[in-house]
């Protein structure tokens, strides 16, 4: 049996990859599908290929600074991906605004056959897209790491290297703006099931 496969924890993989760099590919096998899908939702399927590759290359090059007390590398990788996505902020906002304006999502078009173009006609999401486009980059990162990457609040704090309280305040602000855009009462944004994480 390949000894590499016997490695279990992410921290162990990162640690051993310092001496045996090729072992780092185990993290790619574990998390690249999730990172790719997350990047595709934010920027489109084509951009996700490069972004996924660059996320893992950046992680590989900075692995000596990885905090080995963190057993799960997912937040770290999502943080790197978020940073790279942030560099394409204009493209992301352009896509969201196009959806808000036309009811057709150019990002969804990147993975949906145009024969099924009705699938990318998402006029129901237009107000939401407009609200996401209007968020600050930091607020949008927090909201989408929670909603699309299923990170807990502490994991978001770890990913973005910000205090837990900042995660909560950013998320509350983002949710309030989204709810407002969706026509609901922004005063009712607090959701105990979310805050309890």
């Amino acid at each position: 049996m390949n000894r590499a496969i016997a490695l279990e924890g992410d921290a162990e993989v990162v640690h051993r990859s310092l001496a045996q760099p090729e072992l780092f590919a185990l993290l790619y096998d574990r998390y690249a599908p999730d990172i790719h899908r997350y990047a595709a939702r934010r920027l489109g399927d084509g951009a996700a290929d490069d972004l996924t590759a660059e996320t893992f290359l950046a992680a590989f090059r900075t692995r000596s600074r990885y905090d080995l007390s963190r057993e799960n590398a997912r937040p770290w990788l999502y943080g790197i991906a978020a940073n790279l996505i942030g560099k394409q902020r204009r493209a992301e906002i352009r896509g969201l605004r196009a959806l808000a304006r036309t009811g057709t999502d150019p990002v969804a078009e990147s993975w949906v056959d145009r024969a099924d173009s009705r699938v990318v006609a998402q006029s129901a999401h237009a107000p939401l897209a407009g609200a996401l486009a209007g968020l600050s980059a930091g607020d949008r990162h927090v909201l989408l790491l929670v909603a699309w990457a299923d990170l807990s609040y502490p994991e978001v704090a770890e990913a973005l290297d910000i205090p837990l309280g900042t995660v909560r305040s950013r998320l509350n602000r983002a949710r309030r703006k989204v709810r407002s855009a969706l026509g609901a009462d922004p005063a009712f944004v607090v959701d105990t099931s979310e805050v309890a994480q």
Partner: peptide
Amino acid sequence: MDEMTKVRELRSEAPTP
């Protein structure tokens, strides 16, 4: 439906590579 559910639905059909 709350706003988080709406956010989660957006582009939820994105494929896993």
